[in-house]
Amino acid sequence: MITFLRRRTLSSVIPLAVVVLGVFCLARLTGNPASLYLPLNATEQMRQDFAERNGLDQPVLSQMADYLGGVLRLDFGESLRTGQSAGRMALDAFPATLQLAGFTMLIAVLGAAVVGSWAAFKPNGLADRVCSTMSMIAASVPDFWFAIVGIWIFAVTLGWLPTSGVTGHGIWILPIATLVVRPFGVLVQVVRGAMVSALSSPYVKLARSKGADDYRIVTHHALRNAAAPALTVAGDLTVGLVNGAVVVETIFGWPGIGKLMIDSILQRDFAVLQAAVLVTAVAIFVLNILIDVCYALLDARVRQAAKT
């Protein structure tokens, strides 16, 4: 397992380097920050000073060298907007996103495991048809629509929940409820499909021949086999959420990494954007390694293949 982890980490280095370079180049395509931070009637001298102060007068290659050297020292420079350390800002914003993603996926995975198994138990039965239709709708409707409808009904009309903010438990409900719908819908379909095939497999027949009851068949024999495909999809969905639930964070004013990225793009705040993207990229690589570890824990065949 240790070898496996080491190799997996090493193989992440090159893609991470590509991300580091890519974000540097792409950020510079968004425009010149000077025109945004200086008054419209700024003189050429003011522009020069601004560029000098922020190192933007240097050739692009030397800017890049500075940036790369900083990355190696985990120093991403300062924010143009606030003057704070960019790395600090990204790391401060990240937990909010991670918590949102974590709770959302926890609810989606547990819910989908129960609902998907229930639907799969009698394929084409009433429960299956209801679940399949509902999950298809859930997987297809965009989250901003749920967000807006949710705000309209629960915050504006009924006044039960806050629309945005950072205090109290109520602020969790609408963002999570909005974010959970699509992963839940997608996962119900994946779990259902995997469970239908697991439940019709010869090993389930063998378990029945040993006198295992329905509960044992589902929870012990089928679910663990159905977990691998569900894990793959859940991993992808989590990556999407960690990547910054940009739309939902913006709508609900959630102080997460997605909102930070959008704000820094709009403000040409290169240093913060670079730091935010890099923090996200590292998080996604770590997440992928964790998913691989889960595969190995679930199935000995993966474990042994990793050894060789």
């Binding site: 010869p202 090993y203 063998l206 006198g211 086999n225």
Partner: peptide, 20 residues
Amino acid sequence: LAGPELAIVFQDALTALNPV
């Protein structure tokens, strides 16, 4: 009765055993 009274041996042991 499934087990103590009546048992069955399947044809393809690889698919009949639970892989995990």
